[in-house]
Each structure stands twice: as C-alpha cells, then as structure tokens.
C-alpha cells in the first residue's frame, strides 16, 4: 500500500481527465482515440489505461498518417501499440497522395485539408466513429481556448463555434443523432508544462525527437527543418549540424525544430519555465493567415 501523498494540481487534472474518458465509454457506441504519436497523445494513452485498468482500453486508436511524418514517430507508434496490445487503425488519403499532394506544390493549407482533415473525416465515417477523443489543449491556440470538452460536430464533421452547446459543471451532454459526432478533449485544462510534469512523474515514454541532440537541419529563414523527405529547399541548402529538439511534432516539413540543450524531461521542464516563445510557433499551419486554425477546425481538423 502506498501512503497517501498530497493531492496536487496534477492529480486533480488527472482525475478530471479520467472522469471524461469514462464518460465517453459510457455515453457512446463507437469511440476512438485519435493517436497522433506526440507527447499529448502519449499522456492521453496513459490516462485511458488508468481509466479502465485492469480492463483493456475500450476504444480503438486512429492515426491519420500523411506519410510525411518522422520515421522515428512511426517506429515509436508501432512499438507502443505492439507492447500495449492496442487496436490501431492507420488511415491515409491515398488518392490525394497519388495525385501528388504535398505541401510544396499545394501550400500547407490545402495539403492539410487533404491529408489531414479529409483523411480524418473519411476515417471517422468509414469506421462509424461517434466520439473522437483528441489530445488538444486549450492553452495551445486561441481558437482551441474556445472549445468545449465535449464538442459537437454536425453530420459533415463541421464545428459551429458561434453556437456551441452550453457545458455545465461536469455534466457532459453526448447525446447525438446518427451521423453526427462529438470531439472529446480530456486534456482541455492541461498546460504544456503540466503535460511534461506528468510525463516525468508517470515515466511515460515519448518520441526521442523531443530530446535535444546533434541533428542535421536545414536553415530556412528562421525555421530549422529536419530533412527527412524530399523538399525543394533541400536542393540549394547544405544541412548544418546543430543541437536541436522538437517542441511539437507534426509533418517533417511543417514542424520546425528549436535550438535547445534540453536532453532530458527535467531539462525540458526547466526550459519551459523560462520559455518566452509559444509551443506552436514553429507549426507553419497555424500561421497561414489570421484565424487559420479556427478555419481548419470548423472544417473538421482536430
């Protein structure tokens, strides 16, 4: 038996998230956990294990693979799913790729719309998923700050931010008609720092790209890009060797690295405490235009 320790702010967040995950299991027919392989997904996965232990997680996992993800991410995903015996669906918009969809030709907005949003909506429809659980947090971006914990989507997967259901206390209303769905955000009230402190406390494995190491990068303006996939900027540039890490993981070209010496979880936490720049700064997709995240979210992006 463990002696009771102080019930901290982190415990309170954990408890709230577990409550939300159990509500999903009780209120929906075919929920799925959107697994994006990043740190938030890793925390979400642990919370789901906790919520239903010793039973198995009663959801399937869904990964929308754009095929532009880091190799290390895919290896990590497959290892985690194998070790935990998880039921993983990988969905890719093959038609768009066959027609040559990539961020250089289409621009990031269109590329995201095809390889992420459309792929996601298709997968949700194909597998008749009525609740999609995501790791998005309200502190990430200001349109996310507006989102409910149970966020209703109409039959076309669209979000109407001007007309959201009231959400009172912890009484989540998951009642929907056939074809409609709900996006659920159990980490709504977590901050980036909470996520890392929880990863440290629970010893949750994360993709090694989060830790600083000497890596070859392309310097493109203020962006540091790890060259994994063919890209036009590669042709003229010579990769430089720098000590860098990823603060947020996405597609290789659209997620910039940061210069950092933080090669451990504690190092990352110390770095965050003095950080002066935001987590998604290096995510190109957030900055295409004012309100671009909101636009993507309305259409069905996570």
């Amino acid at each position: 038996m463990m002696s009771p320790r102080h019930f901290s702010e982190l415990d309170e967040l954990e408890s709230e998230s577990i409550y939300i995950l159990r509500e999903v299991a009780a209120q929906f027919s075919r929920p799925a956990l959107l697994y994006s392989i990043g740190k938030d997904s890793s925390v979400l996965l642990r919370l789901a294990q906790k919520a239903f232990y010793p039973a198995k997680i009663p959801f399937r996992l869904l990964h929308i693979d754009t095929t532009y993800k880091f190799r290390e991410m895919i290896e990590f995903r497959d290892r985690v799913c194998r070790e935990l015996g998880l039921d993983l669906i990988v969905h890719t918009n093959r038609e768009a790729l066959a027609e040559g969809a990539n961020p250089f030709r289409l621009g990031t907005t269109k590329c995201c719309a095809l390889l992420k949003t459309k792929a996601l909506l298709d997968a949700l429809r194909e597998h008749e998923i009525d609740a999609a659980i995501g790791g998005a947090r309200r502190d990430e971006e200001k349109s996310r700050a507006k989102e409910r914990v149970f966020s209703f989507r109409d039959g076309f997967g669209q979000w109407d931010p001007k007309n959201q259901r009231p959400e009172l206390w912890n009484l989540y209303n998951g009642r929907i008609d056939k074809g409609e769905s709900v996006r659920v955000f159990p980490l709504s009230n977590w901050t980036e720092l909470d996520v890392w402190e929880y990863i440290r406390r629970e010893e949750i494995p994360v993709v090694p790209l989060y830790f600083a190491a000497e890596r070859r990068v392309l310097v493109s303006g203020e962006k540091l890009i790890i060259p994994e996939h063919e890209s036009p900027i590669q042709k003229d540039d010579v990769p430089a060797l720098m000590k860098i890490r990823m603060r947020s993981l996405g597609c290789t070209y659209c997620s910039g690295a940061i210069r950092s010496a933080a090669d451990s979880i504690s190092g990352i936490i110390e770095e965050l405490k003095v950080a002066r720049r935001s987590e998604r700064e290096n995510r190109l997709i957030d900055h295409d235009e004012d309100g671009s995240m909101e636009l993507k979210k309305r259409e069905g992006y996570f």
């Binding site: 200001k142 700050a145 931010p161 001007k162």
Partner: peptide
Amino acid sequence: LTDGLKAEREQGITIDVAYRY
C-alpha cells in the same frame, strides 16, 4: 489575446467563453 474567434475580433465582442492559463 482572448477573443479567439474571427467573428469576435470582427465584431469586437466576446461570443463564447475562452479559457486561459
């Protein structure tokens, strides 16, 4: 900083709750 929706910034009003940390 907090009016995260386009309609809010355009109309200069707050429509829905924004959570900040």
